[in-house]
Write a protein that binds this DNA or RNA. Structure first.
Lengths: 199, 199
DNA sequence: GTCTATAACGAGATAGAC
DNA sequence: GTCTATCTCGTTATAGAC
């Protein structure tokens, strides 16, 4: 899948490093212009290159976006996996919710690319989508450990987190007006589960 | 604010009618290309005009988008105001939630323009924003009638509705997988209120 | 009001020298 | 691998005839 080109710089890994720089520049571009309005000319300028030179690293603009998708998904997956979860399964579910919510509001552009279909003409490749699937698997597993197994309950749980994230980003970006309600909302959710299981 | 031009067609209101046609075409364009990628050339083609002719109706592309914003906000406001609310205030709050959620999933493009800031370089004018404010006022009032007055509770309520809408649109567009959970989620919410007020 | 023509710009992508 | 030059296409917006 990777272009087999000999980098000018003899140091191994230089090509990959430059590639990462470009992806970073593309994120910066997306933050200012919007995800769907990334300009390769601007991305190149940010890393001190001319626009055609990017084609030594990415076969097309979509290939660059695909790399961004894979990076964002891997990043969230990594955060979920590296988290130190408490013994209580229910607290574990709470923590994974907090991790995802925190990622969402701290990295709005990454989240937009991963969670919404907002780039016209772009569909993630199977390779790029793999970490996203793995991430969802971890997420669902954490919920299952806490007894959230019914599909409808999983849907509600994800909607609660997504709702807080979307409101936070749209109406109080950078703040914590909605994020601070996560515990209350999860109390609500688990009280609902408990009440239902008692009957 | 309105251009004072004499329409060729002598019938009064012809100009305004054509204007509405153009806005409708722009919505259709936004649905296929995405909101931020509307092309005036395509919009013109859809109404049987050439692209420069649009400038007899809108001073700029942003002016067209502003008209779309105003129309979408007015449409949702109208739906909220025309709804026949039940006597029970709590059922009233449930119904306004359902109305907003239904609008959101039935009109994803309109909702995106109203509720998210997703068009780079566009900010709604004061005129266009007015119906949006009025809509929010009705919404908050309905919640207050049902005893949802604490700002934090209002925030949670809106997040619940937004969460169902965002998940529905992102993961099951056209379906009702999340919409069908609205009643359960509202049960959860009001049970939470009741439980808290009992102590 | 609508048209043709065009200005002015920017995009993504390719060719080929170095 | 990076560059210059260029192709091709698209966009918003304006000028001016009718």
């Amino acid at each position: 899948m990777e272009a087999k080109v000999k980098p000018q710089d003899p140091r191994p890994g230089r090509h990959a490093a430059r590639r990462d720089e470009i992806i970073q520049a593309a994120w910066a571009e997306a933050e200012t212009r919007g995800l769907s309005a990334i300009s390769l000319t601007e991305v190149a300028r940010r890393v001190g290159l001319r626009q055609p030179s990017l084609y030594s690293y990415f076969a097309s603009k979509n290939a660059l976006i695909d790399a961004m998708f894979a990076q964002a998904a891997s990043s969230l997956l990594h955060q979920i996996e590296q988290t130190d979860y408490p013994a209580s399964p229910r607290d574990g579910a709470r923590l994974v919710a907090r991790t995802v919510l925190q990622f969402g509001v701290s990295n709005p552009t990454q989240s937009q690319l991963i969670f919404q279909r907002t780039i016209p003409g772009y569909e993630p490749s199977a390779d790029a989508y793999a970490p996203a699937l793995q991430m969802q698997d971890r997420y669902v597993r954490k919920l299952a450990d806490a007894g959230v197994t019914a599909p409808a309950d999983v849907d509600i749980f994800t909607a609660l987190v997504a709702g807080l994230a979307s409101q936070q980003l749209a109406n109080d970006p950078g703040g914590d007006r909605w994020v601070s309600q996560l515990d209350t909302v999860l109390d609500m959710f688990f009280a609902h589960l408990d009440r239902r299981s008692r009957t």
